[in-house]
């Protein structure tokens, strides 16, 4: 289902103004891992404690940023019917992880900005996406989002919303989603923190293990993680976005079609390498590459720009043939607008 031509023009008209500056509506981005160990048992392993300390450092950045909203994109919340945004004003539950239930229960009560979520859905629709809010008592908020909000926003200082990761979405759709959320931030005149919940390498240790023996699953995963962290420290967010497909092939267990968080992150914060980055922690959590990183708009770029992929503003792809859609041999689609 395509949005109207009017809607599309409106979307395109607002495009290409999202260079990150000091006055950016997204003054801060935070990458955090989603496994529950740093929240529930940081004492189990010195590395888990360092990740926990990394969350605390990120929390200080949030406090200093002047932000009034947290937008959390969780790779641990899969959706099928387009993109879902949490809009229950006060979701309250006791969460238990599917795998790590023995670490304990996580009671939570969050403060969600339902009005922002509704506006973001409207903006996503204007850009051709399917999106909807979810606001149901007992909706299962994923472990990653719960951990992130508990550790980054423990007293609900800031209102938040949580964005799902569509299992069929690829780069175009994810990029457009990031831009749609930015549209909403700009329209409300907000200052938002972009919180990405994702590990780098995601390969868990799948055998029983003593906490003290935790390690990145393989040297190769570790090397790819460190390469990504090097780029993050230099603030080269768009370069990482462009490297996502390779990272997916090299360092990710293919649970989903693509490694999407950096696409979303770059589109939401501004597709550039104009950031300054700080790695607050990088440790194994049950084999995964778990990093806490913050990114802030910087005055000048520290990396060369070398973008290979296009920059879609509007989504009109046929979700039934996503991969074919990108293949040059398929030729132009009848309505090949945007991508």
């Amino acid at each position: 289902m395509n949005a109207t031509a009017v809607g599309r023009e409106a979307a395109l008209g607002e495009a290409a103004t999202n260079e990150p500056t000091a006055a950016s509506p997204i003054p801060l981005g935070i990458l955090v891992p989603g496994l529950p160990h740093p929240l529930l048992c940081p004492e189990g392993n010195e590395g888990w404690q360092r990740v926990r300390d990394g969350f605390a450092a990120a929390r200080e950045r949030i406090a200093a940023s002047g932000a009034d909203l947290l937008v959390v994109y969780s790779t641990m919340w899969p959706s099928i019917l387009g993109h879902q945004l949490q809009a229950n004003p006060e979701p309250e539950w006791t969460h238990v992880d599917d795998d790590f239930h023995y670490l304990g229960s996580i009671p939570y009560k969050f403060r969600i900005d339902a009005e922002f979520a509704e506006l973001a859905v409207a903006k996503a629709r204007v850009r051709g996406l399917h999106a909807r809010t979810v606001a149901y008592h007992g909706f299962p908020i994923d472990t990653g989002a719960v951990v992130a909000l508990k550790l980054l926003n423990p007293d609900n200082e800031l209102p938040a919303t949580i964005v799902s990761s569509n299992i069929y979405a690829n780069r175009t759709e994810t990029t457009v989603l990031g831009k749609a959320l930015r549209d909403a931030v700009e329209e409300q005149g907000r200052k938002a923190v972009a919180v990405v919940v994702s590990t780098l390498s995601n390969r868990l240790v799948t055998e029983p293990m003593e906490p003290a023996d935790d390690h990145i699953h393989s040297l190769k995963d570790d090397e790819w993680n460190r390469k990504f962290l090097e780029y993050l420290e230099k603030g080269r967010l768009e370069d990482l976005s462009q490297l996502s497909r390779q990272f997916h092939d090299e360092a990710r267990v293919p649970k989903v079609v693509a490694f999407k968080p950096f696409w979303w992150w770059a589109a939401f914060m501004g597709q550039a390498n104009l950031y300054s980055g700080t790695v607050h922690a990088y440790e194994p959590v049950w084999g995964t590459g778990s990093a806490v990183v913050s990114l802030e708009p910087a005055g000048e770029s520290t990396g060369d720009l070398e973008y290979d992929e296009d920059d879609p503003e509007f989504y009109s792809g046929d979700r039934e043939v996503l991969d074919l859609h990108d293949a040059p041999s398929m030729g132009a689609l009848p309505e090949s607008d945007g991508d």
């Binding site: 019917l81 599917d98 795998d99 239930h101 979810v134 008592h137 007992g138 868990l204």
Partner: peptide, 28 residues
């Protein structure tokens, strides 16, 4: 879905609300 082995329910009684994460509009 578990990644670290196969798990089995080991508590005799459960009572709660199940909300489908994909189709919460249909299943609560």
């Amino acid at each position: 879905q578990t990644y670290v082995g196969t798990h089995f329910l080991g508590v005799p009684h459960f009572k709660s609300l199940s909300v489908d994460p994909i189709f919460p509009n249909l299943f609560r």
